[in-house]
Design a binder for these strands. Sequence first.
DNA 1: CCCCCAAATGATAGCGTTATCAATATAGTA
DNA 2: TACTATATTGATAACGCTATCATTTGGGGG
Lengths: 362, 362
Amino acid sequence: MSKAELSKSPTGRKRQRITIADVALRARVATMTASRALNRPEMVSDELRARVLQAAEDLNYIPDRAAGGLASGAGLALPVLVPTLHHSVYVQLLEGLEETLPEAGYQLLLGSTEYSREKEEKLVEVFLGWRPSGIILSGIDHSERTARLLRASGVPVVETMDLAEPEQAGLPLDLNIGFSHYRVGEAVVEYLAACGYRQIAYAGTLTELDPRSVRRIRGFQNALKRLGLPHHQIGRSDQPSSLAVGRDLLSGLLAEHPTLDAVFFANDELAAGALFECQRRGIKVPEDLAIMGFADEEIASHLNPALTTVRIPRREMGRLAADLLLARLGGQLGPQPPVDVGFDIVQRATTRLPINATQERV
Amino acid sequence: MSKAELSKSPTGRKRQRITIADVALRARVATMTASRALNRPEMVSDELRARVLQAAEDLNYIPDRAAGGLASGAGLALPVLVPTLHHSVYVQLLEGLEETLPEAGYQLLLGSTEYSREKEEKLVEVFLGWRPSGIILSGIDHSERTARLLRASGVPVVETMDLAEPEQAGLPLDLNIGFSHYRVGEAVVEYLAACGYRQIAYAGTLTELDPRSVRRIRGFQNALKRLGLPHHQIGRSDQPSSLAVGRDLLSGLLAEHPTLDAVFFANDELAAGALFECQRRGIKVPEDLAIMGFADEEIASHLNPALTTVRIPRREMGRLAADLLLARLGGQLGPQPPVDVGFDIVQRATTRLPINATQERV
DNA sequence: CCCCCAAATGATAGCGTTATCAATATAGTA
DNA sequence: TACTATATTGATAACGCTATCATTTGGGGG
């Protein structure tokens, strides 16, 4: 293919990319016909379509999505914001989204907020510049500006991994699918109490910063109060969660409250770290101390003893979020109430069996 | 702000987005001045700049990156392809990239290939449509079409996580920073042999499909041969790697080769699964069986006993890849030879100490 | 006090596509 | 055979932004 064959720009601006005009030229058709041959094959005769396709292949033509989007007004991008990629929960949420969205023609743009509202705000601002068709957020707590920008943009929003309660005025922003962290906190206490534990602690990271932690702890404390159990034992760390932090949290709690009989960790990674520490110290689980995790990541079922935890349907949440969004994008899905996907307590071997209960699941 | 204040389109095409024209109108300046006030503040007088910024804020204006990119010819996107997000290795590689690239104004677009060349090809095609400034790939093995499209596009490419050897003609595509999987295979065998192990097995997933595995195994086998050790023990699985697969691989290998004294797993997750299985079966590690992992993920140092593994500088690799790419994008960085970041064997407690050696690192 | 240069601002023309509507060709109908 | 409905194809004008070049403004030097 010679340079001469390229369509040339009248002005002096740089010009290098193979454009649809080049393809059309080579196929001896109008650019519009080339565009149609590529995007709406059924509108073009077999012969021209073949010529265009061949020309495109010959020239290694790749359509410019930015230009296409500009012209058609169609959205191209679908940003997804997650707090971190270090928890398999979010990776699996993504997988749920990826099952449907890309094949519907949307490009997922990933951003991680590191649990920071400021970062989230910045990312939302950046991504809104990419003509998104919609946007998928984790959690329902956002900065005022984030909410304003999103509302002003008119872009459909899906908030996942948390549930807006009816009493939270103005929430959710738009679509919402998730589960109640408050109720997780409650349910865990109820479960541990049913197993006969009395000195129950909570241990987590970013306990003040992450609103989900805050609500989980609130549910946890309220349930303790309701059941007449002590409620002052909260292990906190401002580090991002890791096995090492789980270990430290356990050490800290045991140092302060030697009489603890159960600890609920904010995720399985922390719980696993704590369990490793117990192994090292010779603390028997669950005889000396019960441990519960959260999220049911793969490691939970492989630990020795296997970790009792809370299962959340994250892949399913991703799928449902995708479905909701597609329905909205497709047309006539109006405002929807929040969808509660719930959660289950997965009983394994780091807690003793509830009194009057049989094993729920392994 | 009333609808009437919006600049209006002469034709009947849909029109809704707040554009820079709206901002300019409100600030009573030309659109070009508004553009400059936003992008090259120093070129505009204080007064006008203030008016424009205020107007933009009032209108919740968000610039359309696609349009901007189209007009300026500047690249906006920087796609990163990784095989999976389930291994922290790749997440940390990403973190290394994120340290520099976003603040240099580039938007990272993430794609996961699931170790499939076909998926990679498709993703490359999609991403090339996004006017990328560059593109970052994992591995040096790509389909013929992938290579052709990339070359035709003229976009700078960085290949990471693997190293093109001089004898591999035509490789790398462009920039390359990584380490040699072949030499990892060799080094592990040499290390285990130095510890006195004789019956050494390799266990991994996708051992035929993933060229990195293939090369690692080749290095492994060649070293065995060179040292006069048996070389027929390879555990394979076609599942994506997981703790469960690690456990199964261990069971399979032990069933077939009861005399094994050491197993090298293709990653730490597999090794951890195997270790959990040993705990369950009462197999003593390293007395009855030595286990080695690969990648030095966080869990390695927390397992009991702590896992001997191979450390690869993935965050650093990400940083260096970013630096290389920025240098290339910035201007005059020409062709570069592959950069070898190397690897280290991290000696912990799942292998016995090498004869005539002291502990390297904990 | 006039001229020239630099700084600031504005007008215009694309960037690569596609929506829209006009033009042409084909086929079917009366 | 003339005429209209239908299927293809083509020309043109946006989409929202910025590069480029023209115009206006404000001084400093002669």
